[in-house]
Amino acid sequence: MPAVIRAARRGRAAAGQPASAGAGAGEGAVRTGADAEAARKRAERRAARITAGTTELEQRLADLVRGGLAAAGRSGYGLWEETAARMVDAQAPGLAARVRDLGAVPGSGAGWPLRLLEECALLHLLDTAWLGRERLPEQLAVTVRTRVGLPSAADGGTVRDDWLILSQDDTSDGRLTTRRIWLHGRDTGRSALLLSFGAAGRTPPLALPVGLTARADVTWHGGAGQLRAEIGELLTVPAPIDAPPGGTGCAGATELYGKALRDDPWLEALPVVLSGVVPVPAGDGWQLADDGGDDALPVAPAVLSRPGLWRLVALSGGRPVTVFGEFGHQGFVPLTAWSDDPSETVPLI
């Protein structure tokens, strides 16, 4: 409809008929200016609340470190939930989510104090980045605003390509279902993450069949290193993927993740395609090892109890496979794989 309206307005202008005239046009301009001013004031008020919240959070992190991390294990989850609620009050849902994640670390098994310190350091880095955002490069400042929970616009550039639909995964926290869909551009090699949300008990509206490819326009959200995007109308009928995307080895994946962290230090995982890897046992867990090489990536502990890991092991049978997944500081999460038949896409979730 907007395109039709724009076309109609262009037609009236070409015919010498203004799109709006008389007092109505002036009133519209006044309303637009007033709306913009009101939006600016709302944004300033929200930024001030987030600043107050980050300042309070910094004090709480300082108290935690001063009192010793061992105290976090004795205080229970209530302390973190109360702090997260304070961040919600400050209209910083991104900070609230990270604080809730901190609350789960003391119960995550051996070595939790080190993991808690790492997460606290990242949260401290985000706090200080927000407080000094005026001094940051523009794109990094956009990333910081997104990480604390401010909405970002899909204005990071549009690309038309044949997009391989590599995975679709739903997670729920009891109140909201989040659907994550990963795309890979056949010609550009770019990755795009599509997010869709549904209220409790409702399926998110966006659904794309894994293992197919279709031509479309994809527009990324702004910010350094951001992969979240929006997809336009499919321009072709989806067809099966005829071959997996080109990949890298384990060392190459580590290098890619390291480079991505320079743009977004809070990036938890990067989409990566591993070529020619074999799933092998490693102590109490598993790893993906380069076929005939010395490099390997650990499989994330959260994956070890999922049936998808055993599907990957069976698909490989000791032979090298191509695997798409997310690689981050907790390890590699396999999402899709291909074996001897490159046209057979096997979902692992």
Rank of each mutant, 00 (worst) to 15 (best):
P2W: 11
G16K: 08
A21M: 02
A25E: 01
E27N: 06
G33A: 01
A38C: 00
A43Q: 09
A47I: 03
Q59H: 15
R60I: 05
D63H: 12
R66C: 02
G67M: 01
G73T: 11
G78A: 15
W80F: 15
T83W: 15
A84K: 10
A90P: 10
V99F: 08
A104F: 09
A110M: 02
H124L: 14
R133A: 13
L136K: 03
Q139F: 03
R147A: 14
R147S: 10
P151S: 13
T158L: 01
D161W: 10
W163F: 12
L166Q: 07
G174V: 09
L183D: 06
R190I: 01
S196T: 03
L208F: 14
L208K: 07
P209W: 05
H221G: 07
R228Q: 15
I231W: 11
L234A: 11
V237Q: 12
P240E: 06
P240V: 07
G247R: 03
A251R: 09
A251N: 06
G252F: 01
A253F: 03
A253L: 02
E255M: 03
L256P: 05
L256C: 13
G258C: 01
L261M: 11
D264T: 11
W266I: 09
P271R: 02
G276K: 02
G276N: 13
V277P: 05
G283Q: 07
D284V: 06
G285E: 11
A302P: 00
R306F: 04
R311L: 01
A314P: 00
L315S: 00
T322H: 03
F332Y: 14
L335K: 12
L335E: 14
T336R: 12
T336D: 10
D340E: 13
L348W: 11
